[in-house]
């Protein structure tokens, strides 16, 4: 069984985010890392291929400046190869354009029995790209899967809902978005890290994929203002001296909630 995982390379979430004042896009010029949300999908794909007893895991990603460090992390985990879409023309691309590009890259990779993505990225979190990819490719989809098994040419998933979860069944090929926590991602081994350095990454442009009208021109939206939200008034911060609980009690009393 062949699985393709869509992975995003993002600025380190531990560093404070900033907008580029000239374009109002998220600054992504520093070193990028594999979005932690995607490590679950990579792990899930590796486990499913392992269980199927054959096939491989491939990656598709889109990032500026030919960035591959996040892809190398996923390759070190065990993915076999990747396609990177990198093109200066892509700056400002919206979720729809991103989905069209990733779908074209999936087709270029020869398609797969299963396409896995995270439910949303940790930096942009539009949360629509996996479902869009399914529509572009004409495939069924199951979003927000928190458990996933494959058997007899179909998948069975537990799909998270607002109040619990649904059991969902779906024929392959299909697109699935998986939640964080669906599996425990492995740490790349030293051997894996060394092997990843020589695994193939095919770098392509939007034109290579035949997708036109990308970047700001294709976005159908323009940022018209960036402002600061109303700040909350500064609160009272105290060190617990053993009586911290009493401050909470009197605070709640003042609010008349106890």
């Amino acid at each position: 069984m062949n699985v393709i995982v869509c992975v995003k390379q993002i600025p380190d979430p531990a560093a404070p985010g900033a907008l580029d004042p000239s374009t109002n896009t998220l600054k992504r010029d520093g070193k990028l890392i594999l979005d932690e949300s995607d490590s679950y999908g990579v792990e899930m794909a590796l486990q499913l291929v392992d269980k199927a007893g054959g096939g491989e895991v491939s990656l598709v990603s889109m990032a500026p400046n030919g960035e591959v460090s996040g892809l190398r992390t996923a390759l070190a985990m065990g993915a076999a190869k990747g396609i990177l879409i990198s093109d200066p023309a892509l700056q400002g691309s919206d979720a729809l354009t991103t989905a069209k590009l990733l779908a074209a890259a999936i087709t270029r990779a020869g398609g797969a029995d299963l396409i896995i993505a995270a439910t949303e990225s940790s930096d942009g979190y539009t949360g629509t790209v996996p479902e869009m990819i399914a529509e572009v490719l004409g495939l069924p989809s199951v979003t927000f899967a928190k458990a996933l098994t494959i058997a007899d040419g179909k998948l069975d998933a537990q799909r998270q809902t607002e109040d619990g979860y649904d059991d969902v069944t779906c024929p392959l090929p299909a697109v699935v978005s998986v939640t964080a926590g669906v599996v425990e991602p492995r740490y790349p081994s030293f051997k894996g890290i060394m092997a990843a350095k020589s695994k193939p990454v095919d770098t392509v442009t939007a034109a290579d994929l035949g997708v036109t009208s990308v970047g700001w021109a294709g976005a159908g939206q323009t940022i018209t203002n960036v402002g600061q939200a109303e700040a909350r008034a500064a609160g009272t911060i105290v060190e617990d001296d053993g009586e911290g609980f009493a401050k909470i009690v009197s605070y709640l009393e003042n609010l008349k909630v106890i």
Partner: peptide
Amino acid sequence: ATGGATVTAV
């Protein structure tokens, strides 16, 4: 094909 997913239990 896009309509392939079906909920079997809630």
